[in-house]
Design a protein around this nucleic acid. Structure first.
Lengths: 223, 223
DNA sequence: ACCTGAACACCGTTCAAGT
DNA sequence: ACCTGAACACCGTTCAAGT
């Protein structure tokens, strides 16, 4: 009745896919996407780069596993929203906030089609779409539209995070971007210039939700 | 009154940013994103890798310029749609088709926030939103939602293209994916399984348009 | 079975030297 | 002003050799 398995955890530092993924997530969070290197990662795990390949096929698989690991937590619980609309907002915001906390997830989601993480988001969204009482023929398109919108925002937020100097705040970025928009050629960019002042004090999260609501509005309009 | 400039085009092969970008686009189209290398590119241009750096700051700038070059054509003409809705569909489909022809554009658009190409798409969309007759306060959110949706699809389509073996057709991919969906755990993926049969004979382009229409439906519902 | 770490085949980028 | 191409500082990945 020994509580420990055969010989793996005599010491707690035996290599495993979980430990590798965990270390990769830490590295990505601290050093960003360019900070994840098999050399740095293996040094952190006190081993050689080759050892990682015993547990993980390649870097791409490692990134997928790291994304899954973080999003698993977010998507574990069924959304508690009282209405399907609220449940969808909840799922969307969960992904949004996860990307806010771990920007590299955004890059990963935007890059890799039909990865298990994206599939799980799709499933969650679809179930709530089914509860919305719209024609069945519209379910697939509706869930797909929501997913693609979420993945689009994911990619852009990740890009924003990547281009930010460590010191700058979200407000600095918006201010600079707003000035850039205001300085565009009025003949070529009339709309963007009109909207520039709104950029400075808009809230990314609220605008993200507004987009979700526009899609929801379109879907419920089919009833 | 010589028609040729000082000494640059004595021969037509003098290096310039345009020629470099042109060669980069060709290389990206033929060999994919991983095929674009400063060594291969400079060999194609019959020069050394260092020469490129006289005209282009780095690889990232080259990719941005290549994306801009291709999308400039797509976004040059004002959309001819009779209604704002149709004009928006036209812009969206233009981007969609450009990505279909040059998948690497999708990756680029999904990766780089506020790049000039994305800004031009945003502007085009926004102008038509203004013509839609919805409250002004909604214009920014509406244009942003459309752009993010388009960029999300862009990223996924690029990812699909990247993961495809050169031989496989779109139908092969859909067939395989449909089977994968159908084989998922019914307890965990009820919605995705329900929708799996629709995947096999659905049309990416039509589903893309359906998503645009859902957002448009949400926006016009604000009137 | 699992780990080690040197070595391979690449990258993007720099820079002294040329014209 | 513009080009050349060797060299630098990295990568991901492999693999013979160890335990």
């Amino acid at each position: 009745m020994a509580t420990r398995t055969r010989h793996t955890d005599r010491r707690g530092d035996a290599l495993s896919k979980e430990r590798i993924v965990e270390a990769a997530v830490d590295l990505l969070d601290e050093a960003g996407e360019s900070g994840l290197t098999f050399r740095v990662l293996s040094a952190q795990l006190k081993t050689g780069p080759g050892a990682i390949y015993w547990h993980v096929a390649n870097k791409s698989e490692l990134l997928v596993a790291a994304t899954d690991a973080v999003l698993a937590g977010v998507l574990a619980a069924d959304p508690a929203g009282a209405t399907p609309e609220n449940a969808i907002r909840e799922v969307a915001l969960g992904v949004f906030d996860a990307i806010d906390a771990h920007p590299w997830i955004g890059t990963q989601l935007a890059r890799v089609a039909s990865q298990s993480a994206a599939l799980r988001i799709f499933e969650r969204l679809g179930r709530q779409i089914q509860a919305l009482g719209v024609p069945e023929t519209a379910h697939f398109d509706a869930a797909s539209a929501l997913l693609n919108y979420i993945l689009g925002v994911a990619g852009q937020n990740a890009a924003n995070a990547r281009s930010q100097d460590p010191g700058t705040t979200r407000l600095d970025v918006l201010g600079a971007e707003s000035e850039l928009w205001a300085s565009l050629d009025p003949a070529e960019f009339p709309f963007t210039r009109t909207v520039a002042p709104q950029l400075r004090d808009h809230d990314d999260r609220e605008q993200f939700l507004a987009g979700v609501d526009l899609i929801l509005g379109g879907v419920t309009g089919l009833r």
